[in-house]
Write a protein that binds this DNA or RNA. Sequence first.
DNA 1: CGATAACATGAATCAGTGG
DNA 2: TCCACTGATTCATGTTATC
Lengths: 376, 376
Amino acid sequence: MAAVLPLADLKRQVGPGNWINSIIKGDCVAALEALPDHSVDAIFADPPYNLQLGGALHRPDQSLVDAVDDDWDQFASFEAYDIFTRAWLLACRRVLKPTGTIWVIGSYHNIFRVGAIMQDLNFWLLNDIVWRKTNPMPNFKGRRFQNAHETMIWASRDAKGKGYTFNYDALKASNDDVQMRSDWLFPICSGGERLKGEDGKKVHPTQKPEALMARVIMASTRPGDVILDPFFGSGTTGAVAKRLGRNFVGIEREQDYIDAASARIGAVEPLGKAELTVMTGKKAEPRVAFNTLIEAGLLKPGQVLSDVKRRHSAIIRADGTLAANGDAGSIHRLGAKVQGLDACNGWTFWHFQEGEALRPIDDLRAIIRTDLAKLS
Amino acid sequence: MAAVLPLADLKRQVGPGNWINSIIKGDCVAALEALPDHSVDAIFADPPYNLQLGGALHRPDQSLVDAVDDDWDQFASFEAYDIFTRAWLLACRRVLKPTGTIWVIGSYHNIFRVGAIMQDLNFWLLNDIVWRKTNPMPNFKGRRFQNAHETMIWASRDAKGKGYTFNYDALKASNDDVQMRSDWLFPICSGGERLKGEDGKKVHPTQKPEALMARVIMASTRPGDVILDPFFGSGTTGAVAKRLGRNFVGIEREQDYIDAASARIGAVEPLGKAELTVMTGKKAEPRVAFNTLIEAGLLKPGQVLSDVKRRHSAIIRADGTLAANGDAGSIHRLGAKVQGLDACNGWTFWHFQEGEALRPIDDLRAIIRTDLAKLS
DNA sequence: CGATAACATGAATCAGTGG
DNA sequence: TCCACTGATTCATGTTATC
C-alpha cells in the first residue's frame, strides 16, 4: 500500500520530503499550496473535462458549482471552469521546478480553455500530443465524427524554457530510428488493467492506460524524478512512476479512489536499474576538446586535415587551432569559414589521412571517450 | 478566372447575390460586415496561427528553413490575437445560417485560444478533428516531438445546434463501412498541386491540401451550398467547392493571392452529379515501432532476446532500446553492432523464447499489424 | 533514355555551457 | 544578463542532375 497523507498532517510540517511517494488527501489547490516551491520535476494532470455532462465542479474555495441543467447559463459555467483551471495551474506552476515540464490531458470540451489559460500563465507550449484510440466509443446517433482521440498539452514552466528533460534519443531508438511524432496510438484502458470494485463496476470513470502514461514518463523524466499528479484518481501516474523508477506525489479528494490507488501502487514491482537505463545520444557525452587529441598524440601539429571530398584542407597548429588560406580558428569556425557557412561541426567535417582512407576526427574523439569511460 | 469584387463595390449594393462565387478584396471583418445576415451555409477559416519564432532555423545540413514570417502572422501579444480572433469569429457568426457549421484550422500556437473564444461566443463544438500529416517537417534540433498534425474545430452556430448538415452515411460508406473517425491522414500540399509563381517559389506559405478540404466539404455541406472562407489565401476552398458543385465566397487582402486563386479556380472543372457521391481517403501501411510491442505487453523490460543461433543476446530496456555488452541502441543498431555489420534488420534478427522455441520478434509485429489494419 | 544519385523543402513558437 | 563558443541535429516526397 502506498502511503496516504491527510492534508492536515502535511500542513503540520511533518518534515520535508515526507510527501514523496504518497497520496495527499484533500482539495487540489489547498494541497498544492502546502508543497514547497520548485519541488517537482514533472506534472501530469487529468483535470475534470467539462461542466456540460453534469460532473461536479468545485471552485477554489471548495464550494460546489451548481449542477448543469438545461437552463444553465453557459458563460457563467465557462467562467467558473476557467477560474478553477487558472487556480490549479497557477498552484502547479509554483511547485514545478524551472526546468520542469507539465502534461495536461483533455478533450475538446475543456482542452481549449486549458491551453489558452496555460499560455496566459506563461507556460511555454512544447507540443500538443494526440492520443489516438484504437478502440474508441462509437458515435451512437450518427450526428458527428467518432470522437477517437484525446489531446495532451506538453509545456515547460517558462517562456523559451530551456533545460527540460526530453529523452529524444531513446524515443527515436525505440521507434525504428525515426523521431517520435505528435500522434500516438494506444488502446483505451480495459481488461485486466481496468480497476474494478467488488461489484464488478469500474472504480474510476476515466482511468488512463498505463502504456500512455509510460510513454509520457519515459519521454520527459529521468529515473529518480518526482512526478506530481494533482488529480490522482485511480493512481495510474503513481503505478507507472513506481514501476519505472520514478517518484510520485498524488492529490485526491475521494477516499474510494485513494483506497484503490494505494492498493494498486503497493502491488507494483519496480523495474531493475539495467532495464531503466535511458539511452542517451552525443549531447549527454562528456566534452572532449580538440586540443586533447593533440595532447594524446592522436594528431600532431603540422598535420593536414581535409573535408571528406578533399575540397578544403587545413593545417593543425600547436595551440589546437587550424589554419587555412590565411585564416585560423577552432575546428568549427574554420570549417564554417572555408565553406562560407555560418556554422559547422568541425568534428564531423574535418578528416585525417589513414593509409589511403580519410577518417573523421570524431573517430579519435570516440577513442578518448572510451578511455575516459574506463577511468570513471 | 473567378470574379474579384473590391469591397467598395460590394458596399455600393450592386445587388444581392452578386458576391456568390467571387473573391472579395478587403479586410476580413469589414468585408464580412458587408454581407447579409444568415447568408452562408458553411464557413472554413484558416486564420493566422500567430507563430512566435525566434531566430533563423537551420537544418542539420545547414540549409535555411523557409519560415512563415509574413506580416499577416505578426501580433503584438496574445491579447491582440484574441481581439482579432473574437472580431472575425463574431462577424462570421452573424453571416452564418442558424443551421450552418464552421470549421477553423490551427496549430497548438493558436488553436486553444480560438477554441476557447468560439465557446465564449456560443458556438457549439461538435468535434475537434486531427489532420495527421504523412510527411510533416521533422524537428531538427531534437528537443520536441515531431509536430506531425494540425487541429480543426468543427462547430455549429448555436448551442445544442440542430439541423446542421452531416453526411454520416456517405462518410461511413466511403470508409469501409465504419464511421469516420476524428483523426484524418493526409499528405501536406506539395508537388503539382502546390501553386508556384514564375520564380518557381510557392505562392502562399500555408496552402492546404485539396483532399483535406474535400473531406470537410463532403462531410458538412450539400451540393449548391455557399461556403465562406474569410482567409481565402491561395483559394483551396474555392477550388474544391467549385469542383464539388458547391458555391464559395472568399475574402482576401493580398492582391497576389487573389490573382493566383482566381486563375486557379477558373481552371477547375466541376464534377458531374454522378461523381459527387463518394470519395475515400488514402490509407497507409501502419508502422509498428519496437516500443509498441512493449507498450502492448507482448515483450517486457528485462526480457532477453537472442539471434536464432543463440550466438548473441540482449536485454530489453524500458525505454524501448536493447542493451548488450555495454552497448545499447535500437533493435537495428544493436543487431548490427553485435555482428560487426553496418546494418541489420532487428525485426528478423532478434528472437524471443516461446516454450523451447525461438520466434522472431517480427511475429509479434504481425500480431499488432493485424489489430491496426482496421485503423490506418 | 533509363536508372540512380543528389538536391530541395514543408505553418517551426527547435541548444547548452561558461565567462 | 549578455555574449562567445562549442557542436548537435531531419523525414517524406518531389525535382533536378548525373551516369
